[in-house]
């Protein structure tokens, strides 16, 4: 149900996940604070380049960009009208301002640039590897544990959900707009929680039986090779140059 993006081999897939996380982190911070249009356009171009290098399949890419752009579209309904500034043209009683349109455009570019980078990261790294990399980068062990358990339990809950729905169907449950339906569905949600809690307990007991002491072990060890270092330096340099462009008074 929640399949990770798995795509073919790419150069980015083989990079050290710690490098990828660091680059996306600094890139996102710069994009969040940048306001100059040409810097933002450069960031967007960089994002597009990385997504192309990561070989994210196009239909998948667009499907993932939809939720972000829905909110952006919602803001476009308001910002051009509510932002004070030089009027461009009027629609009835409402006036579209130049500043408003520019502001909305900046938000759209920023948002999409950051999302492209995030998608490239997720598409080229399995979730469990990301978890181990976060641990290596200093995220507290308990948070990483919670992250792993949660990811695992999303699948467990989905399987329990399918079982419950099937058993309801077998007993001839047909949903309608009545109290019986609401009660049944809320009991199902409650039962889902109870069953998942029980399974969580069993999983944890099984882990304790196998000597789990709260330590994380990864089958793959991370090591920085030449390619990682070069990519890291290149990307960080690009981010720094754009940062300088952003803060320089005159270009």
């Amino acid at each position: 149900m929640f399949e990770e993006l798995s795509n073919g081999d790419s150069f980015i897939r083989h990079l050290d996940p710690r490098v990828k996380i660091a680059v996306v982190f600094f890139f996102s911070i710069l994009a969040a604070v940048a306001v100059r249009m040409h810097v933002l356009l450069w960031l967007l171009s960089l994002g597009i380049l990385i997504v192309v290098l990561a070989r994210v399949p196009l239909p998948e890419l667009f499907r993932r960009l939809i939720p972000v752009n829905l909110l952006i579209a919602f803001l476009w309904l308001f910002l051009p009208f509510t932002f004070a500034g030089e009027p461009m043209f009027s629609v009835g009683a409402l006036t579209v301002t130049r500043e408003g349109v520019l502001y909305a455009a900046r938000i759209s570019i920023k948002s999409n640039a950051m999302m492209l980078m995030l998608i490239a990261l997720v598409a080229s790294t399995p979730i469990f590897t990301l978890g181990h990399a976060m641990h290596e980068l200093g995220v507290p062990q308990k948070i990483v544990h919670l992250f792993f358990f949660t990811y695992r339990y999303i699948h467990v809950m989905h399987r329990e959900y399918v079982r419950l729905v099937n058993s309801m169907k077998i007993r001839g449950f047909t949903p309608g707009n009545n109290l019986h339906t609401y009660r049944t569905i809320s009991y199902m949600v409650g039962m889902l929680l109870v069953k998942s809690f029980d399974r969580a307990q069993r999983v944890h007991n099984a882990m304790l039986c196998r000597g789990f002491e709260g330590n994380l072990y990864s089958l793959s060890t991370f090591s920085l090779n030449g390619r990682d270092v070069v990519s890291l330096i290149l990307m960080i340099t690009a981010v720094i140059i754009l940062g300088v462009l952003e803060w320089k008074k005159t270009i």
Binding site: K142, I143, L146, F149, T150, R152, M157, H158, L193, G214
Partner: peptide, 22 residues
Amino acid sequence: GMKDLDQKEIPSMGILSAAFFV
């Protein structure tokens, strides 16, 4: 939230976290 968090609470918290996600 992490201050007095015991390792053995994490699996049950994971369930609620997954429920929140779903």
